[in-house]
Simulated assay, not measured.
Amino acid sequence: MRKYLLALSGLLCAATPLSAQSSAFHPGPVFTEFGQVATIETTMDIPADASFAIAFDTATRADVGEINRTLNSAARFINMHVEAGVPLENIRVAVVVHGGASLDLTRAELYAARQDGAENANAAAIAELLDNNVQIILCGQTAAYYEIGVADLLPGVGMALSAMTAHALLQQNGFTLNPF
């Protein structure tokens, strides 16, 4: 019976609309259109002088019309920590992109040509992330595979020799890899 109830509760949660599940989430103080956060009562204090240098990694492309989930997570990371009292200048974030997610970093012309004329929903989010000192770096090996040149990238997006190179250099500069 217990297994049945657990399975049933799992199905009910899965069937509950996301809007009902996420009612605790609200716009953050830095990014208001994406990267929503929930205010949390914690038992782990964040020191007043805390600083963060976090690298995110993604190879998963966003669905057409959606913001890449990892870009959203990077914005949420910044929003929740600023809301918790960490000064924005104490937060360094980088997003390393490879694989199919590479298309999410491209200019309108290339994106539309490869997505049946669709608009790149990531463009505005990327511009806002870059305006807030988030580094967005494309794997050069992936770019070569997908025939994406530097001129095809949205303004401000960087190109590394590889994602492995980008992560190694970021780590040497004090960044830790976000584990999910």
Rank of each mutant, 00 (worst) to 15 (best):
E89H: 04
S51V: 00
L103Q: 07
A121Q: 12
N133W: 04
Q171A: 15
I54K: 08
A50D: 04
G10I: 10
N133Q: 13
I148F: 07
H98A: 04
G65A: 10
G65S: 06
G10Q: 05
I54A: 07
N68E: 06
A168C: 03
Q141A: 00
R2Q: 15
R107H: 06
S51A: 10
V97H: 04
G117H: 11
T142Q: 01
I136A: 01
I91H: 07
T165G: 06
M159N: 01
F25C: 03
C13F: 15
V86S: 04
L177E: 10
K3T: 09
I67T: 08
E41F: 08
C13I: 15
M159D: 01
Y146E: 11
T142L: 06
V95H: 06
H81R: 15
V64E: 11
Q172N: 13
I148R: 07
A144M: 12
S23G: 05
L177Y: 13
T106E: 03
L161F: 08
S19D: 15
D104N: 11
A48M: 07
L8A: 15
A84V: 05
N133F: 09
F56P: 01
T39W: 07
L8V: 14
A84L: 07
Y111S: 10
S102I: 01
P47D: 07
E109Y: 01
L169S: 09
L8S: 04
S162C: 04
L153C: 10
A50T: 09
V97D: 01
R69Q: 14
P179A: 13
A124G: 02
L130W: 03
L103D: 09
L177R: 15
N120Y: 02
F52R: 03
A160C: 10
P17W: 02
H26F: 05
H167I: 08
L170I: 12
L177K: 14
L129S: 01
Y146T: 06
N90C: 00
F31I: 00
A62V: 13
V97T: 00
A50M: 08
A168V: 11
L11Y: 11
L12S: 13
I54R: 08
M44T: 14
A15C: 12
E41T: 14
A125Q: 04
L5W: 13
R114F: 02
H26I: 10
P87K: 00
C139N: 04
A124E: 14
G149F: 10
M80N: 09
I148N: 08
V64Q: 10
D49V: 06
L110N: 03
I67D: 05
S19T: 12
T32V: 05
A75T: 05
R107T: 07
V157N: 01
G158I: 01
A160L: 00
D63C: 02
N122K: 02
A125D: 11
F175L: 07
V86P: 10
S102D: 12
G149Q: 14
G28E: 04
